[in-house]
Nucleic acid binder design. Structure first.
Lengths: 135, 135
DNA sequence: TTGTACTGTAATATTTTTTATTACAGATAA
DNA sequence: TTATCTGTAATAAAAAATATTACAGTACAA
């Protein structure tokens, strides 16, 4: 149950709908019933990737750093750094087993391919597109 | 940290490498340093999807139910039923907010599209292909 | 210049999910 | 009838995500 991508997308949607305005983490958190600190954490990731800007102090808040046509959902996905779609084994396979010895590398390659497929799909959708679906 | 897909793929790899033999959950678990009960749980899912067969009692164990050319990694992915690649929000967005009211449905559609992209990618790879990568 | 309303961040607690462990009933072959 | 396996439940332990609390720093405004 990991809602980081959903939080980030929700915020970007709000920012896109209210261009020019600075939205606070409290306001945004209220719109999605989530803790404001969690919003600020996701915002840090988005800002580190150059997708949003933030302003401190009174009248501070968040705004888009780029036109929404330039922000794809792949950018969001990469920014929030979700755990891999195929999961990740915590165990270390037995190195004495010919299969156990090699399977880690093959599974890693596969995971990379799947992540690439996800990014490819998400890169075709911008925040602008996503928001345009709304009534 | 979810290793269910890795466990399932590991077992299928072993079964593919040793055709005709029945492999026990203890043997398999030893090859990947994981708890035997966890192996049996994943095997239940694979059997429910018709990918493997199991035999109880002494000399019991697991075997492939289909030729490895007929089992794709998409079949495995669907069988193990991982949580969605984009995560899943546990919170319920504020229904009084025009964005909060609608975003759930749009995020669900997006999640479906991404899952479809993953399945499409994985459906191009059979267990036979995967195992053929090994030395 | 002082109060107010934000962000940024750390520390901690709670909740949820995953994995491990234990236990035992039932099946099957030797 | 004994040993070895699957099937499954119940419980414990470990890991991850989220919530909460707290507070320093920043910027605006009265």
């Amino acid at each position: 149950m990991n809602g980081q991508f959903q939080i980030a997308t929700h915020v970007l949607t709000l920012l896109c709908k209210q261009p020019g305005e600075l939205l606070s983490s409290d306001y945004v958190a209220g719109s999605m019933n989530v803790n404001p600190v969690l919003v600020r954490k996701e915002m840090r990731k988005l800002r580190a990737c150059g997708l949003i800007e933030s302003k401190e102090g009174k009248t501070g808040g968040y705004s888009l750093a780029l036109p929404p046509q330039k922000i794809t959902l792949a950018d969001v996905y990469k920014a929030v750094k979700l755990p891999p779609a195929l999961g990740q084994a915590k165990n270390k396979p037995n190195p004495d087993c010919p299969v156990g010895k090699q399977i880690g590398a093959h599974l890693d390659n596969l995971a990379d391919d799947v992540e690439a497929a996800i990014v490819k799909k998400l890169s075709t959708i911008t925040i602008f597109d996503f928001v345009n679906q709304f009534d």
